[in-house]
Design a protein around this nucleic acid. Structure first.
Length: 276
DNA sequence: AACACGCCCTGCGCGC
DNA sequence: TGCGCGCAGGGCGTGT
């Protein structure tokens, strides 16, 4: 899926085109997403409204509409949110299509349908079940080694699995969890609570650094990902360990290995990332 | 409370 | 060439 850098890339590419534009109509061609699309609420809350801002919270895009409503969009594993010419034929898996006042269309495409689009009143944002329990933003000033140290104290989970839990830290998915741990030289199987203060400092800095570098290069495209204008990301070449099982580590030349943790594959260098 | 697990869904690449 | 299998960037409900 789009992780934080990919969602942020979509946000940045859409902002200049969407702010000030009105949602003139919506067509829902497939309502069976992770949360079933509520067509009536989309029509009542979103259609006719003008876009005031496009924000991001974790892996969620939040499209603020004038008139006190917003659209919450999650791209799941395979989702795309792209601006297209209305004359462009619809593609397979174009599930939700917004007609815009400038004649173009904003299209939500998602083959696996793990994503969602929800309209709500802006005042409900903080209490909404999908948002209320989300953890800290890793690119915010409040995120630090000290905070990560505090958050990890009572978790016996492997640190890799811990990082994937959006109720603790948002936005870090399977690619960037492995990349951050590699940069911090921490073994993915280390129990979260076993990390020292120095190690959580290193890890927090690595998370921030890898996310920022990925955003700077438009995100990671493994297969599906494109930004709001249909352009693929460029960070896949910069990945140090993810997907590089068997290849030599650029730092120590040992072969990168992978293991499965909590059902997700983790990549690491056995030379640079010792378990203790 | 914390954590492991299975499941949601489609598409693709691989081995046979 | 075709087919079945395993696996994929996420997140939640359920069980212990």
């Amino acid at each position: 899926m789009p992780e934080l850098p990919e969602v942020e890339t979509v946000r940045r590419t859409l902002v200049p085109h969407l702010v000030g534009v009105t949602l003139a109509a919506v067509r829902v061609r497939e309502r069976r997403l992770r949360v079933p699309v509520n067509v009536a609420s989309l029509r009542q809350l979103a259609v006719g409204q003008t876009i005031a801002a496009v924000r991001r919270r974790g892996k969620y895009l939040i499209i603020d509409l004038r008139g006190g409503t917003l659209l919450l969009v999650h791209l799941g594993m395979s989702g795309r949110l792209t601006l297209e010419s209305a004359t462009q034929p619809l593609a397979r898996h174009d599930h939700v299509v917004f007609s815009l006042s400038d004649g173009r269309e904003l299209r939500y495409n998602d083959p696996r349908r793990f994503g969602l689009i929800v309209a709500m009143a802006s005042r409900d944002e903080a209490q909404h079940p999908l948002l209320a329990r989300l953890g800290v933003e890793p690119l915010s000033p409040e995120f630090s080694g000290a905070l990560l140290f505090a958050l990890t104290r009572h978790s016996r989970q492997p640190i890799k699995t811990f990082l994937l839990d959006a109720h603790r830290v948002v936005g870090v998915g399977n690619i960037y969890a492995s990349e951050a741990l590699a940069a911090a030289r921490l073994h993915p199987a280390r129990a979260a609570h076993s990390l020292s203060g120095r190690e959580t400092e290193r890890l927090a800095a690595a998370i921030r650094d890898v996310l920022e570098r990925a955003i700077a290069r438009g995100g990671t495209t493994l297969r599906d990902f494109v930004d709001g204008l249909g352009v693929a990301g460029d960070f896949a070449n910069a990945l140090a360990v993810y997907g590089r099982d068997g290849e030599p580590c650029v730092r120590c030349r040992r072969r990168i290995r992978s293991v499965v943790q909590a059902g997700r594959r983790s990549f690491f260098c056995p030379g640079c990332q010792r378990s203790r």
